[in-house]
Design a protein around this nucleic acid. Structure first.
Lengths: 115, 115
DNA sequence: ATCGTCACTTACTAAAAGGTAGGTACTTGC
DNA sequence: GCAAGTACCTACCTTTTAGTAAGTGACGAT
């Protein structure tokens, strides 16, 4: 477990929210707790496998809290830690930018169109 | 070339800067133009193949401009379009957050430590 | 009695991403 | 004459990521 060195802040941030789904999950959790199934519906297109896998990593990274109510049928709630909430706030401008330019972005050619 | 629909702004943004390198390249270009070799040194750890590949996509996406001086030896400069500059600004908070928490992030266990 | 729901887990497979190592054409410096 | 630097391109191969499909166990509803 050696400490990693990042050459800039962005690299450090990406170590936490890199990958296809983490940002979207983080955003999907929002300010209030979410149940697993709820979250799955919120993050459009994600598979159960990916959702759990990413949630576990995010828990280890200290941005997500998992609360198991130990009931039957199972009830589990996911929420953001303060660290996670802070990170979510920082993503807000990116989210707004995307919303603003959504149309333009949706019309861009993909790699497949080019190839 | 069908238009894509995004379920939130973040998803649209990620369509542009998703992946391991694009954010870092965007950040590396900065406000002034950069030559290819310069950029390669700025984005620590990237291979030439990835750098060109990503730059091409970013050009197609309208966030990067390529200027070829048609000299020998070759001289090419990359710079951000206004669309790209806007996007870069939106990444700033994320970059600052990462810088602020860099130490903490660097000490997190990785998946390999856990497995 | 079977279905659906809940929150997962596991095994297998497909696809995407990324790295390595080579080559190109031309010039300058030693 | 040879090495180094410029900005790439290409083929090949490995690694990583992600998706599919199945199963679990206890319950409530039909």
């Amino acid at each position: 477990m050696k400490k990693k060195i990042y050459s800039c802040g962005l690299e450090a941030s990406l170590a936490i929210i890199g990958g296809k789904w983490k940002c979207l999950i983080l955003w999907g959790i929002g300010q209030d707790a979410r149940r697993f199934g709820e979250l799955k519906r919120a993050v459009v297109g994600i598979s159960e496998k990916m959702l759990i896998q990413e949630l576990k990593e995010m828990e280890l990274d200290g941005i997500v809290k998992r609360k198991d109510f130990r009931e039957v049928p199972p009830r589990v709630e996911y929420s953001l830690t303060s660290f996670g909430t802070e990170l979510r706030e920082v993503l807000r401008p990116l989210c707004e930018w995307g919303a603003k330019h959504m149309k333009r972005i949706g019309n861009l050619p993909t790699q497949k169109d080019v190839a």
